[in-house]
Structure formats: C-alpha cells, structure tokens
Design a binder for these strands. Structure first.
Lengths: 209, 209
DNA sequence: GTTTTTCTGTAGCGACCGCTAGAGAACTCA
DNA sequence: TGAGTTCTCTAGCGGTCGCTACAGAAAAAC
C-alpha cells in the first residue's frame, strides 16, 4: 500500500521550504498504531512512542500535534488499515446475516493474526483512561458501529429478508457483544480456531431462511 | 454481611497494643473497590484512593501494603460481594443451561445496577496495565471462569443432559464472550433491558431439551 | 553567498506518580 | 505514672509524565 501524503517533501515535488523531515511520517504513524494497539492510550507513554517511532519528542509534536491528536490519527489509520473488514462485509454481502457471518469469521482471524497485537484497538485502547474525551471517542465509535449494524438489519426486515417481529436493536447489540467478547478472548490468549468456533455458535441465533 | 477481621482493635476484644486505627478497614476497602471498579488499576492513583478512603497515604500503606496488594484485596472483596452471582448460579441450578441462563439474566442487572460502576471489575479493571502481573492476575481469573463453565457443561454432557457431540469448550468460550461483551456494553451505556435482550438472544443457541 | 524557513537534538520545565522517613499522638501494659 | 507499641500527619523522596525553549542543522528563496 502506497502511503497517502499531504506534506511529504521528498516525494511531493519538493515545494516546502526549510529543513525536510528526516523520517517517514507514515512509517512512524504505523509504529504508533502498533504501540497504542498493544498497550492502550494511557499505558503508552510519549517516550515509548518516540522510541518505537525512532524520532525525538519535538519531531513527534511538530508532526502530529500532541499525544491525543496522534492517538486520533492512529485510530483513523487503524480503521482504514485493520478495521475496514466490517464495513467491507456490510457493503459487499447481500444480507445482514451474511455480512455478520463474514464479520465474525474474519474477526476470528483478524483478532489473532500473528505479528501484531491481538484483539481490536477500538475495543481496548481507550479503556480506563484518565482523559475522558479519549475514552469517549472510542465509545462513540463502538456505539456508531452498533447503529450501523442495526440499520442494516432493519433494511433486511423491511425487505422481507428477515422476520418482521425481529428486534433489530437487540440483534445488533448481541452481535456487537459477541465481537467485543471475541476481542477480549483474543487478548486473553484464545486462538483463531477457538474464536471461529465461537463465531459459528453465535451465528446459530439467526432465524433459518 | 459481617466483615471478617484479622486485626480489628475496637471489635476483636481490644488485645492489640499501640494506637488504634482511626478508620474502619472494611469501609475503606469498599471505597477502594468502587474506585478501582470505576477507573481501573492504573487510572486510580494512590492519591485518588486516599481521598475516597478518607485516610492518609501512610495509613493506607500500613493497612494494605502497597497499591498492588490493595488491588488484590479489592479483587477478592469484589468477588465475594459483587461477583458471586455466577458461582451461586452454577452451584444452585440443576443444569448448565439453567445456570448460564440465570448468569446472563443476572449479569444484565448486575452490570447496570444504579449507584455503582457499570460492567464487571474483573473484565475491565486491569486492561492496558503497565504492571504485567496485575493484568495477568485478572486474565487468569477470567480464564479460570471459562474452565469452570466448561467443566459444568462437560458434566451435563456426561449425564446425558446435553448432546454428546457438543463442544463444551467452545460453548463455554461463547458464553464467556457474551458475558464480557455485555459488560462492555454496560460500560458503553446499555441499560438493563437492552442487556437482558442480549441475554435472551444468546440463550437461543442452546439445544432444545 | 545571505536570508528565511523548518526540522532536529539536548536539556529540562512543572506536575504528578508510588511510596516513605521522621516526629508526634493515642493506645496497652507494667 | 512511665515505658513500649502502633498509628497518623507533614513533608518530601526519586522517578516518570506530557510537553517545550532553545540552539544548531538543513533545506528553499533571494
């Protein structure tokens, strides 16, 4: 994947003045993603970040603002790079049921992929946070995902694909709970097959079509 | 519930010498439970603790050891006072299915009870921890709960109460994931009825008996 | 070249962290 | 009463936190 840039001197036709940045911004951001993903917002100190990103503190602050702004950018980057499988499933699968089945199966693999932190950054990285806005930002993201799923289920109900008496909100929340639980299990050491088994069990709640 | 004591001067027949403790140890511990429950291990500072417990730092260290020892005691107290509903259900209900049904329904109420922190301390209080032993201690607790549930399900399979081809480990893990997901949902603002609906949906995975 | 602009490295700011030394207070025991 | 014991209070330890002032380095503009 080619990194998208807005202020990259050596690539984007050296138009910026002054001393050029000595590190690759996207690479540094990716390291920050891994650090925050692994240890969460609070437990990842700025000195941890400068170490894994390979830059000094002033460079970090010049390039990303402060710790909170960097985290926001990390969350966005995580969303496009690692968390997009849910949106993709919702967009590509013909029914809510098929989308959820795919999401759960893919989550089992995503949350236990080797060579990267287990579980979901959005679920874990901002729990027990002394900065309420940070905790709230991921909470809103999680709740927004629930609403998205609920709307998808409602659409299937309206289309006659699912029973009219189905509780879309409850079904969406159940699915969210299973996903978050799978993420926790992944953090607690569960492997891909174990999570896949959980996913299969969870899918049996859907009405037979 | 009567507080069990080992060194309580004013109740246990004033046998201890020296200046007596000026605060009630059990009351102070309860305040620590609420603080750790709400904010987690790292985000609850010793100065937070001394404030809500109403004592000075030296008194805290004299009575409870250090922060980590206090947290261990808090987890134990939480277990007996707030987390015992699961063990009770497993002990009192005749089948694994009935026990899980009761656990899920009670969790919906417990995790959203007013006037106390939402969700489960064991699930949330030691995530994103810079002290690995603390994080590990609750992880072990969660995994031990999974094993307990798995054994209960296996017993029902052996007794012919559940199908012989049932995957006890997967079913236990699924149940654990739903419980942890419900706890997360409670933290994210879900109410009792919403969690109860999730619990009802989750119970539909059990084979009809 | 010189000037202007921007980034980098050192070094350290004030605030808070978990924790404790030391002195005095409050009790039991003789 | 006095001695011995244990708790409480004030104050502050060394360390880390997020963050930045400042001087020098590296580029474009002139």
């Amino acid at each position: 994947m080619v990194r998208s840039e807005e202020t990259k001197p050596q690539v984007k036709a050296a138009k910026t003045r002054g001393r050029p940045r000595s590190f690759d911004r996207a690479t540094a951001l990716e390291q920050a993603v891994l650090a925050f993903w692994e240890h969460g917002y609070e437990a990842t100190s700025v000195s941890d970040l400068t170490r894994v990103m390979g830059i000094g503190a002033p460079s970090l602050y010049a390039a990303f603002g402060d710790k909170q702004a960097l985290f926001a950018e990390v969350v966005a980057e995580y969303g496009t790079r690692y968390g997009s499988f849910t949106d993709r499933a919702l967009a590509e699968e013909p029914t809510a049921r098929a989308a959820v089945a795919r999401i759960l199966r893919e989550a089992a693999a995503e949350y236990t992929a080797p060579d990267r932190p287990h579980g979901c950054l959005v679920v874990h990285a901002a729990t027990n946070c002394t900065t309420p806005e940070v905790e709230e930002s991921l909470r809103e993201r999680r709740n927004a995902n629930l609403v998205t799923l609920e709307r998808r289920i409602e659409a299937d109900i309206a289309a006659g694909e699912l029973p009219a008496d189905l509780d879309a909100a409850a079904l969406a929340r159940h699915t969210g709970a299973v996903i978050q639980g799978m993420s926790q299990q992944a953090r607690d050491g569960a492997g891909r097959e174990e999570l896949a088994a959980v996913a299969e069990i969870a899918m049996t709640i859907w009405p037979r079509t």
